[in-house]
Design a protein around this nucleic acid. Structure first.
Lengths: 338, 338
DNA sequence: TCGTTTCAGTGAAACGGTTCAACAAGGCCT
DNA sequence: AGGCCTTGTTGAACCGTTTCACTGAAACGA
């Protein structure tokens, strides 16, 4: 702060109003003092242009009015949107959002979580890459944590918003199976062993049940790289007739790769996404994808964390969101069975 | 903070190491103390698991290690991306990003700027809706401000990254004119009178020069609403043959509206964007748009603000970015002249 | 040898709030 | 009338750092 006019402090207000600084502190928060004192102090404070210093307040009270937002990677469009939306809702609840980006690296995500805790954020909204880790339990000891996406198995978080991935996977594969697809690629995000659960377990079980030939691949977060991964998938000799993507962003990469290779969606390749990002309605054909009620979800997550802030024994809450298949035009029977 | 193990303070480290707390403070920052003391203190601090409290540090030093990011609206995909990228770069420079969203409201943007200043952010990166306002000069007095997009005419900001909108508009309209388009819609963002400069002045001048019939419209930030605006534009009796959008996000709305109305791009409608967002390469046809070197831009902006933090008399810098037309397949001669 | 610089390290004063313990003045009850 | 609770207000401790002013000792030059 180079120039910066000196700010008015609470002490100056107290002097000007002829009361103690404690009285000013109370008066401005409307507690412990009489109506008339409150009014007088408010007037003086306004005249002097007093604004409480949030830093000093944070040091004294232990509250910063800030909530951390921590996903796996902001390269993903859905996560970008989630973070932006969470910031908006938090603002409406008188909090600031501290949005940080591990860029897809699980270790970095942990490092950032620690740093946020040390930064004294009041709460944390996180989509953990490594959910069942006791690391998160440790973090949750220091501040209210709301987790999005996967269960924090052992962690004592204050709130959870879970996607019913089992049902999601089943619906997606059933849908494709019903259209006649037998050889299907499943594109998931890079992550740690625990994130693989939906991909490995659910997909495996479902594939067995339906008698599908499933190929599980990993697509990086960055769109260009995801496109490259999709390109590779489509360049083998026995290419799948359909791709199920664990994120709309991945599906966009598939669209780009398909176009490059001269494949038409859905004639040559069916695609299913997972987020219902607004862009999915812009693509031609519209992407068939799962809606998880993002707006509602964000609001729930923010409400849970804000409500828990300050409570010494907040009640735990958990929401499970059921997938809602939005059929676009990106799926059709495979060519061979036409 | 409900449970939260008590954190180790600098005093405890001082006692354990047998030095004063001042010595610890200096030692950990590697100044004013001997090598051996530094080492001893570091060891003790590590053993005790000491982590400096950022809040206390901020109060004492006046630095928070935080930079505010403030655009017009995070509904816009380019701005979402900008904010995410800025957060990433800041992290690499040991700073946190405080990303806030005015949701397209100019007044709200001002309010948030004030709030960020009061929150003691060390610096601010802003795309002002109302650039020439003296309000920003006032803000810039208190902390280093880097502005993106339009000149902050009278404001004494520490850094500027300017888009050469005059050239951008000229290129876009020349390109469309060259293809044979005469009736062109220009879609800009909602904003205040000052933001209208590129739209009104540049577009007006260029239209006169080229003899174009130009229709300037406003498209909201939210994709659905932008789509509605585009739909309306395409539903009049004398619809334009081309649309020049002041943001790729708007262009996406145009794509969606065109598809709904059964219009094919570029046969029935040519579209030009303005950001070269990654999604523009996914669309079919690829969007013809202007590249402004986002990554480089973000890095420059962050570097300028970080460098200015702490300097009492930082040197002012300014970059002007020239538009780089990326031709996709979204422009072609109008139907009538085929 | 003496006075003057350096160097390491210290104690205490900020920074600007919140909150606790104490107290005075009324009002109420018995 | 005396004791007790309630209400309004205050002084001071506290939050955990940074930083300023200062000291004692060692190093140095003349």
């Amino acid at each position: 702060m180079s120039p910066g006019a000196k700010r008015v402090t609470i002490r100056e207000v107290a002097d000007a109003a002829g009361v103690s600084q404690a009285a000013v502190s109370y008066a401005l928060r409307g507690i412990n003092v009489s109506e008339e004192t409150q009014e007088r102090v408010r007037k003086v404070a306004a005249d002097l242009g007093y604004e409480a210093n949030p830093i000093a307040r944070a040091l004294a009270s232990g509250r910063t009015g800030t909530v951390g937002i921590l996903g796996p990677s902001l390269e993903d469009l859905w996560q970008q949107r989630f973070a932006a939306e969470a910031g908006r809702v938090l603002l409406a609840r008188d909090h600031f959002a501290l949005i940080v980006d591990p860029g897809g690296d699980p270790d970095r995500q942990r490092m950032l979580a620690t740093q946020l805790r040390d930064q004294q954020v009041d709460g944390l909204i996180v989509s953990p890459v490594n959910p069942s880790d006791e690391f998160w339990t440790e973090i949750a000891k220091a501040l209210p944590v709301v987790s999005i996406g996967d269960a924090l198995a052992g962690a004592s978080v204050v709130g959870e918003v879970l996607f019913d991935n089992g049902t999601g996977v089943a619906r997606a594969l059933e849908h494709l199976h019903g259209l006649g697809h037998r050889r299907i690629a499943v594109l998931r995000r890079p992550g740690s062993p625990t994130t693989d659960r939906p991909a490995e377990v659910f997909v495996g079980a479902e594939a067995d049940r339906l008698g599908l030939d499933v190929l599980v691949l990993t697509a990086p977060y960055e769109l260009g790289q995801a496109t490259a991964a999709a390109r590779e998938m489509l360049s083998t000799d026995r290419t799948p007739t359909a791709a199920f993507c664990f994120s709309d962003s991945i599906a966009y990469g598939v669209y780009a790769a398909a176009r490059e290779l001269g494949l038409t969606i859905p004639r040559d390749l069916s695609v299913v996404g997972y987020d219902n990002h607004p862009m999915s309605a812009v693509l031609a054909p519209r992407l068939t994808t799962f809606d998880w009620r993002s707006d509602w979800l964000v609001e729930k997550a923010v409400d849970m964390v804000v409500e828990a802030i300050g409570r010494r024994r907040p009640q735990r809450r958990r929401f499970v969101i059921e997938p809602d298949l939005h059929e676009g035009g990106s799926t059709a029977p495979p060519r061979s069975s036409e």
